[in-house]
Nucleic acid binder design. Structure first.
Lengths: 129, 129
DNA sequence: CTCGACCTTCACATTAATGGAAACGTTTAG
DNA sequence: CTAAACGTTTCCATTAATGTGAAGGTCGAG
C-alpha cells in the first residue's frame, strides 16, 4: 500500500503520515523506487495514533505505548521488552492514570453544574436575565 | 497578593502566570502602579489550571470550563450562564468524556501487557534474551 | 540612591501540523 | 515513444500553542 492509499483509508493526509514516521511512531517499508510501503495493520495503527493524539497524548508517549498496544491486540508479543522499556511503560501508565483521575473529577463537576442550570432554566423558562 | 507571591505559593513562574492572563484563563486586578494583584482564590485556580493542562486540555478548553468548575466548588454560581456558554460547556463535556473513554481503554491494554510480562519475568528470572 | 520586584515587548524553543518548491517515479493519452 | 498529469520524494519554511529568556524601563522599600 502506498502513502496515498493509506491516507485515503485513514483520512490522514500523506504529509502527516510522513511526519509520523519522522517522529518515530510509524515505520513503513521502502520499495525499490524509494516509495513508502505500508501493510494492512498500518491502517489500524494510524487510527490508533489519531485517537491517542486527540485524547491529548504526545507523540513521545505514543511511541512508548504503541508497540505494547499492538502486541496486546494481536495477543502475540513479538520480542521480549527490555527492562528500560518496561520502566517507560510503567511511567506512561501512571501518567495516563493521573490524567484519567483528573478528567473524571472535572467531568463530574461540569456535569453537576450543567444539570443544575438545565433544571433551573427548565423550571423558569421565561425568566432569563 | 503580587505575582511573585502567587508564583511562590503555586510553584508556577511569574512569566507563566502572565501568559495565563494573556490567553484569558487568569484575571488579576491591577493596582494603581500597574502591578498585577491576585486574591487567595487565584492559588487554587492556578493549581487547577496546571492540573488540567497536564491532563492534556488546551487553554481554550480550560477557558470554557474553569468558570463552571469554580462555581461548582463554591456552590454559588455568580451569574446566569448564557445559552452559548452552556453549549460550549456541553461540547467540552463530550470532548472530555471521549478522552476518558480512550484513555481508559488504552490504560487497560497497557496494564494487561505489563502484568503479563511481569509474570513472565518473575517465572523465568534468569532467562532474559 | 540602590537593589530587587515588577512592567512591557521582542525573541526563542518545542511540539503538532501544514505548505511550497524542485526533483524523480508512474500512469495515461496521443 | 513522447508528453502531460499525477503521486511521491526530500528539504526548507511556516503556523499555532505552550512555555521561557532577556532587554530596557518603572516602582518602591531599605
Amino acid at each position: 500500500m502506498k502513502i496515498g492509499d493509506l491516507a485515503e483509508k485513514t483520512g490522514v493526509a500523506p504529509r502527516l503520515l510522513r511526519y509520523y514516521e519522522e517522529v518515530g511512531i510509524l515505520h513503513p517499508f521502502r520499495s525499490a523506487n524509494g516509495y513508502r510501503t505500508y501493510g494492512e495493520p498500518a491502517i489500524d495503527r494510524v487510527l490508533q495514533i489519531r485517537e491517542l493524539l486527540e485524547a491529548g497524548l504526545t507523540t513521545e508517549m505514543i511511541r512508548e505505548v504503541l508497540p505494547c498496544l499492538e502486541a496486546a491486540k494481536e495477543g502475540t508479543p513479538k520480542q521480549c521488552p527490555v527492562a528500560k522499556d518496561l520502566d517507560g511503560l510503567r511511567r506512561q501508565l501512571s501518567s495516563i492514570e493521573r490524567r484519567i483521575e483528573v478528567l473524571q473529577r472535572n467531568r463530574q463537576a461540569i456535569k453537576t453544574y450543567l444539570h443544575a442550570w438545565e433544571d433551573t432554566l427548565a423550571d423558569t423558562p421565561a425568566e432569563a436575565g
